[in-house]
Design a protein around this nucleic acid. Structure first.
Length: 894
RNA sequence: GGGCGAAUAGCUCAGCUGGGAGAGCAUCGGCCUUACAAGCCGAGGGUCACAGGUUCGAGCCCUGUUUCGCCCACCA
């Protein structure tokens, strides 16, 4: 065997680098086996609950899911550690059209359509697909470390939820809040279904704008209207003009004779019409245009449907009946031309709505659909936000929310597809009675006929997801889960479904449960690429969470998402940052490895030492005070949903205080012969490391659990450890202030050393000139520590001294640092730097003096601010004086 | 057209109730110093988009402008 370089001596138990893949797999399996994610319902404890925004069962984990679920897991783990009854309900959404599409595509490979199978067999096929493939995204969530209560996983089509859907539908129907009526919908003539607005894609398309002459009914002239869809003129039932448009006032009584058909139609006056567009006259086709439909309602116009559901002209189209809509368009144009009605044709680019699944041009058309009257429900939701029962984070969404709720239209809940909750309504073939019931009726309650036909439409997928917060907890049964966990604590989701989903959950929760569905809503940003572009497969800028996890580890990836999750801002994810946080995880790993090397033989009894920090040496008191500050910061950030601060507070503390200063400082103690010094160091090291692991566990569950399990003593999972609490006994302002001085001195001496290019291993001689006797005492007390950190040889602390000319020089507070460096000074460089310093100081001084001599400032500014300015003035004057002295000395050398 | 948001170091971003401009990465210099070279020590770098205003004091508040992004309605 080839002798490879053995970098990792046997004395460490942990590998040199953190090997995340193995650790993640091992711990997740362990957590599942131990059921540590299971919700407990213990009386007397506060509850914390989250329902997952159910991903589509067809979904694969994308970056948005990754962010969304990381933030949820962060909160869930935090609250679980706080000892609360904590539940995170997972599940998936049956995603009507999307899922039906997937299965239809599968069928297509077998040269089959759903119609070949028939409704029942097709639905069986979909269930079979779900059994086989529906778990993909759930397994991916597990790789993210999500601590969902998997035993409670739900599906919007499962038995319980289907029951909830029926209950709600029947109740709303009986309350008169669900009705069936005509409405204009986006109709796909190929798929034969209504499409929701978000299922229609608007493509800018090159088309024509046809200007058509509509003669006055009395033959006295004509008005030109413009349209991109001339075939719809067959369904025109009015011409509309603006009420204040003086050009057309005389038409009020005349009317229009519709070309080609000769029908007489009225002129209506409506504010919707833009006077500036074209001639300011608009043809109105209420049955085939959304806006026209609204105009038609306002003016009580008939709706004349001229096409069937395949996009073919019907009998109402007269001689054009039987023509496809586009063939009809050609024919109409040519007829208009022939008969002299065509004014002109212009090239025109406009947005054409297309079916998102088959790209067929969508035909707005009227059809019988089921609706929810949302006005009364919406009012309840608005009230809940207004009076603060529901809080939106960030609060800026409130305005948008209100605006949307004010303009809300009735919700079309029927879809002409097969996969979904079939509408529980039956029509009696004998007497026409409509029966809406929870249980399937056998006979008509009106006439006794058994000839009943169930509605073929299914419900909009959002209908079932609107019930998600209570249906997943067992409603309509009265369950303990509902008692403990409803209303849920917080909903975390992306803002793009605020209206589709969040608002509807509010409406349903408030109406059906008579209670809000959640207290808080945290709306996170969309994740974009580092340049702010939307991620899309065609742009090729997609960051795949699973690839990131494989490359950098789940913890690093989660930490990155958390660090980016600042409120109210889009997230531009930069892959380099993930690598940066991977290094941070590795840093933590190595700090633990270092600790482990000393703690292996640690006596658990010594850990009690941290209970009384006053007896401890300075560095220990300092780090305990600092970790206490970090605990406070992290808790406050978590409680306020300031996720990026959770990350930065942890990062800053662990790397730059715990590792950079504390671990370096206590090395001397850990290797010391002094047993007391050693024990203190071990005790505090262990204690602080434990705090750090617990503090970071919610963000980085795997590495913290792995390290935790390796620490001395019998340990159960870190997941069930109490989350750190602020400990007043650890607060020590004095230790922090002294350490600040010492760290300043150390940094100052290091700078002098580096600038003079003294080799790091060479000892330097340092003179600390300090007029303050108390400070001199402090410096003397901690001189060995400081010396060790800067590798100083001799080290003298004096009240005053003559500074040699060729010496490095710095000022920290009122301590002057002097390092004699015969012949090592870069005089020119020093002079340059001193001049720069001098400039800055003078400018700053000028500003402060200006302030302090400003009468208004002195009378208006608070006491504390003035005092601070005075202090600053004194400090800057002192530094300026020293700078001038140094300049003087440098000049002598040059 | 309506609404919302953003503009801070080369890049990606923090900056909370107005009170001395910060981080990470990148750059430059030095270091294998007994956890970590995936590391350590140090340095440089900003007219806080622009123009006004309020204030003793503005990155932060107000008005306007420019640029960018998003949402809604999309004009027949």
């Amino acid at each position: 065997m080839k002798a490879t370089e053995q970098q990792s001596p046997e004395k460490y138990d942990l590998p040199k680098g953190y090997e995340f893949a193995e650790v993640e797999q091992r711990w997740y399996t362990h957590w599942l086996e131990e059921k540590t994610f299971s919700a407990r319902m213990i009386e007397g404890k506060p509850s914390f609950s989250i329902v997952i925004p159910p991903p589509n069962v067809t979904g694969v984990l994308h970056i948005g899911h990754a962010l969304n679920n990381t933030l949820q897991d962060l909160l869930v783990r935090y609250h679980r550690m706080k000892g609360e009854n904590t539940l995170w309900v997972p599940g998936t959404d049956h995603a009507g059209i999307a899922t039906q599409n997937v299965v239809e595509r599968q069928l297509a490979t077998e040269n089959l359509t759903r119609h070949d199978l028939g409704r029942e067999k097709f639905i069986e096929r979909v269930w079979a697909w779900r059994e086989e493939k529906g778990g993909t995204i759930i397994n991916q969530l597990k790789r993210m470390g999500a601590s969902c209560d998997w035993d409670r996983e739900r599906f919007t089509m499962d038995e319980g939820l289907s029951k909830a859907v029926r209950e709600v539908f029947v109740r709303l129907y009986k309350e008169g809040l669900i009705y069936k009526g005509d409405y204009i919908v986006n109709w796909c003539p190929r798929c034969h279904t209504a499409l929701a607005d978000d299922e229609v894609e608007h493509d800018p398309t090159d088309g024509k704008l046809y200007h058509i002459r509509y003669p006055y009914a009395d033959g006295s002239g004509y008005v030109v209207v413009a349209t991109t869809r001339p075939e719809t003129m067959l369904g025109d039932t009015a011409v509309a003009v603006h009420p204040d448009d003086e050009r057309y006032q005389h038409l009020k009584t005349i009317g229009i004779s519709l070309p080609l058909t000769g029908r007489t139609i009225p002129v209506v006056f409506d504010h919707h019409v833009q006077r500036e567009f074209g001639t300011g006259a608009l043809k109105v086709t209420p049955a085939h245009d959304r806006d026209d439909y609204e105009i038609g309602l306002r003016h009580d116009l008939p709706r004349l449907k001229v096409m069937d559901d395949k996009g073919v002209m019907n009998a109402e189209a007269g001689k054009y009946a039987g023509l496809d809509r586009f063939a009809c368009r050609k024919q109409i144009v040519s007829d208009l031309q022939e008969q002299g009605f065509l004014d002109k044709i212009e090239d025109y680019q406009h947005a054409v709505g297309k079916c998102y699944r088959c790209a067929t041009v969508v035909e707005p058309t009227t059809s019988k659909q089921w609706f929810v009257s949302v006005r009364p429900l919406a009012d309840k939701a608005v009230a809940a936000v207004q009076d603060g029962r529901i809080n939106l984070y960030p609060a800026t969404w409130q305005r948008t929310f209100y605006a949307w709720m004010e303009n809300i239209r009735d919700w079309c809940i029927s879809r002409q597809i097969w996969w979904g909750h079939r509408i529980p309504a039956w029509t009696c073939a004998a007497c026409g009675e409509v029966i809406v019931e929870v249980t399937d009726p056998d006979v008509c309650p009106a006439c006794g006929s058994a000839n009943l036909h169930q509605e073929t439409d299914v419900l909009d997928t959002w209908f079932s997801s609107a019930l998600w917060p209570f249906s997943t907890l067992g409603w309509p049964e009265k369950t303990r889960e509902l008692d403990f966990f409803y209303p849920t604590s917080v909903l975390i989701t992306s803002f793009d479904i605020l209206f589709f989903w969040v608002a509807r959950m509010m409406m349903m929760g408030l109406h059906i449960m008579d209670e809000i569905p959640f207290h808080d809503v945290y709306l996170h940003a969309l994740v974009r690429d580092k340049h702010g572009k939307k991620m899309s497969k065609s742009t090729g800028n997609v960051i795949d969470p699973l690839v990131m996890i494989g490359q950098y580890g789940t913890d690093a990836f989660r930490f990155t998402l958390t660090a980016f999750a600042a409120q109210g801002r889009e997230i531009r994810l930069d892959e380099e940052r993930i690598d940066g946080y991977r290094r941070f995880i590795n840093k933590l790993w190595n700090a633990a490895r270092f600790a482990q090397m000393h703690l292996k033989e640690a006596d658990p009894a010594i850990t009690a030492m941290t209970a009384n920090p006053k007896i401890l040496a300075l560095a220990h008191r300092w780090i305990l005070s600092r970790v206490n500050g970090a605990v406070k910061d992290v808790r406050a950030a978590l409680d306020g949903y300031n996720f990026n601060e959770v990350a930065s507070a942890s990062y800053q503390f662990v790397w730059h205080e715990f590792c950079d200063w504390y671990l370096e400082w206590i090395k001397a103690d850990l290797f010391s012969d002094d047993a007391v010094a050693r024990d203190q160091a071990k005790a505090v090291l262990l204690s602080v490391l434990e705090q750090v692991l617990k503090l970071m566990h919610p963000i980085t569950p795997f590495v913290t659990e792995e390290i935790w399990s390796q620490l001395p003593g019998e340990r159960s999972s870190i997941m069930v450890e109490p989350f750190p609490e602020a400990n007043a006994a650890w607060e020590d302002a004095e230790a922090e202030s002294v350490m600040n001085l010492l760290m300043g001195v150390i940094s100052g001496l290091r700078t002098i050393r580096t600038e003079a290019e003294v080799h790091p291993s060479a000892k330097i001689e340092a003179i600390l000139i300090c007029p303050d006797a108390a400070k001199r005492q402090i410096l003397a007390d901690y001189a060995p520590g400081v010396q060790a950190m800067v590798r100083a040889g001799s080290f003298s602390i004096v009240a005053s001294a003559t500074v040699p000319d060729d010496a490095g020089h710095a000022l920290v507070q009122d301590v002057e640092l002097v390092v004699p460096l015969k012949g090592l000074i870069d005089v020119a460089g020093e002079l340059e730097k001193l001049a720069r310093d001098q400039g800055k100081l003078e400018k700053e001084l000028e500003r402060i003096v200006g302030k302090l001599s400003n009468e208004k400032f002195m009378t208006n500014a608070p006491e504390a601010v003035v005092a601070k300015e005075r202090e600053k003035e004194a400090e800057i004057r002192a530094r300026l004086a020293k700078t001038l002295e140094s300049t003087e000395r440098m000049r002598k050398l040059s």
